[in-house]
Design a binder for these strands. Structure first.
Lengths: 152, 152
DNA sequence: TTCAAATAATTGAAAATTCATGTTATGACT
DNA sequence: AGTCATAACATGAATTTTCAATTATTTGAA
């Protein structure tokens, strides 16, 4: 009946980095399964959701959707072929390429957002409001610290 | 000089799932770069570290290292070829395959663990002891909740 | 006991990712 | 203006991952 271990989770590590990775995958698993049932890759969801807020340059978008730039370039080729996003060159900089959703892409994003928000509500139910607030604050702080100026 | 945006992080989402994913990647980035300098894939580190605690079956290990089974199977082929791990069949169940480190694998794990621990210390410096404790507790709770019995 | 369903792991073909490099555009400095 | 370093994105080849079977073993129900 049980696929996993009996009562204790197999938990070899206590590293914060590991707990974050594991929490990330397990918390997202259900929503990702939902996307999968709809035949939508996670990257597609992230990309259309991001650019429907605001057009983004490729490298900026790569940072947001947590992909490497060449991976994203190729994902964009696919999404462009599906008519979900468009690449746009602007006058301010001729090397930047801005990505924006097509009407179809925007509709897809709008269709998925309520599902994402519902999932968010479900997740937050596992925490008290205070815990949730502190958790998010801690995560934002870690992100801010580790992402500030990567001129290494 | 700055690769990223000027002063604010590009932060389109406030979903906990997204903050977890982003915190996970940004917190781990430095350690992952260190592994990369050593020519060691992240998966190799995770696998040898996991099995040097305790031999694990393939599916159990897949859960721990956050990989899908087929992905892990093939990663194990590579690690076995490099002489870092061994597959072992036991009497208790002839379909399970246990993975354990070779001497070389164990040495690799022992060499990397201090680096991981050092990284952990660095990360924890960003939080007060109380914050760190609460953060880990919240993460463990989320993990426990979302991983308990996936008999869906 | 027997047989169908479930579990554990592997495999092969297709798809996506990665690494290194290529191309073009900017910026800075002389 | 000319040169050099850097930034932004794309691309090709190699590697890895994924999806959908397949094989082998175990469970359990009739």
């Amino acid at each position: 009946m049980k696929t996993q271990e009996q009562d204790t989770l197999a938990y070899p590590f206590d590293y914060l980095a590991y707990l974050l990775a594991r929490a990330s995958t397990s918390v997202s698993a259900e929503f990702h399964r939902e996307l999968r049932r709809l035949g939508i890759p996670v990257s597609t969801w992230r990309i259309v959701a991001s650019v429907s807020e605001k057009a983004r340059s490729v490298s900026e978008l790569a940072g947001i959707v947590l992909m490497q730039q060449p991976t994203l370039s190729k994902a964009l080729d696919r999404l462009e072929a599906q008519g979900l996003v468009e690449r746009e060159r602007r006058e301010d900089s001729r090397r930047k390429v801005y990505v924006k959703p097509t009407e179809k892409g925007r509709m897809l994003a709008e269709r998925l957002k309520p599902k994402a928000q519902l999932h968010e509500q479900e997740v937050l139910k596992e925490l008290t409001p205070d815990e949730a607030r502190k958790l998010k604050a801690a995560l934002r702080r870690l992100i801010r610290h580790y992402e500030r100026d990567n001129s290494t």
